[in-house]
Amino acid sequence: MQYHSPSSFNEAVAISNSSSGLVKYLAGGTDVLVQLKIGTKSPDHLIDIKNIPGVREISLRDDGGYTIGAAVSGAQLTEHKELSKKWPGLVEGMELVGSAQIQSRATLVGNLCNGSPAADSVPGMIVAGASVSILNSSGTKDVLVEDIPSGPGSTSLENGELITAINLPKRKDYEGDAYLRFIPRTEMDIAVVGCAVNLSLENGVITSAKVVLGAVGPKVILAHSAADCLVGTKLDGNILSRFSAKCSQIAKPISDKRGSEEFRKDIIGVIAQRAAKKAYDRALGNN
C-alpha cells in the first residue's frame, strides 16, 4: 500500500486517476483505518486529504450559508457556536458518532462516504438541504447530499471523485431541525433507527417540512409523504400519531443483529414523532 499526502484537491484527484488498484481517500480515518486493521479493505493507494489548505475550515459564505471543509472534525462542528445554533440537528447528529476521541477525527464527509444506512450525520445534512462539492478530472460539480448514498456501503461517487466540502444553505428565521436515534445504550452504538426533521414556520404553522429516516432501508429514506402531513399544522390534534404511523409505514427495515424488522418499524414512528416535536420547538424559538 502506498500512502500519499497531496497539497491540493487537484493533486489528490490526479493521483487517484493515475493509480491502479483500489484507491481510498483518507480524512479522519475513523472508518478507513478500522477497515484496514480488521482486513475488510486493503487499498493499494491511500490518499490523505488532511494536509490540503482549508480542508479543516468552516467558513460563512457571502450568501449567508456555511461551507464545511472535508476534513472538519465533529468536535470542530460542536465547538462552532453560530453553526451549532443555526443547525443544532445537523450538529447533534454528527456529535452522536463515537467517543470524544473519534469526534476529534471523524468528519461529515467520511460519514457520508462510508455509505452506512445508519450514518448519524447524513439525515441531518439531507433535511438541511445540504449539497457537496465534488471534484473530478473534468471539473467541479454540486450534488445534493441525498443523491450520494446508493445502498449499504456504497455511494453514487465515481472512481476518483472527491468531495471537497459540504455546503449548507442560509438559515432563515423560524426554522428548526432535530436528529434523534434509538440505541439500546446511551452512546458508543450504531443507530437501530434514526430520524432527522427540519421545519419552517409562519405564525407557528408549519409551511415546509423535510423528514429523513435512517437505518430502516438500504439507504436513508426521504419520507416525503410523512413530511407532507405536517405541513399546515401546529403539530396539534392527532397529527403526530398520523405522522408516526406514516413513518412506520414508509420504513423498510431488515432484521439483523441490531434489531428486528418489527421492532424497527415500531420505534421509527416513536423516534420520528419525538424529533418532529424537538424541531418544532426549536423553530418556534429561532428568530
Binding site: P184, R185, T186, E187, M188, D189, I190, D256, K257, R258
Partner: peptide
C-alpha cells in the same frame, strides 16, 4: 450472543456485544 442460522456468532465486537458504557 447473536447467532445466525448458520450457528456463527454475528456480534463478535464490543460495538454489538453491548456491555454497559459509563453513561448507561
Amino acid at each position: 450472543y447473536v447467532y445466525g442460522t448458520d450457528g456463527c456468532l454475528q456480534n463478535a465486537a464490543f460495538l454489538d456485544y453491548r456491555i454497559p458504557v459509563a453513561s448507561d
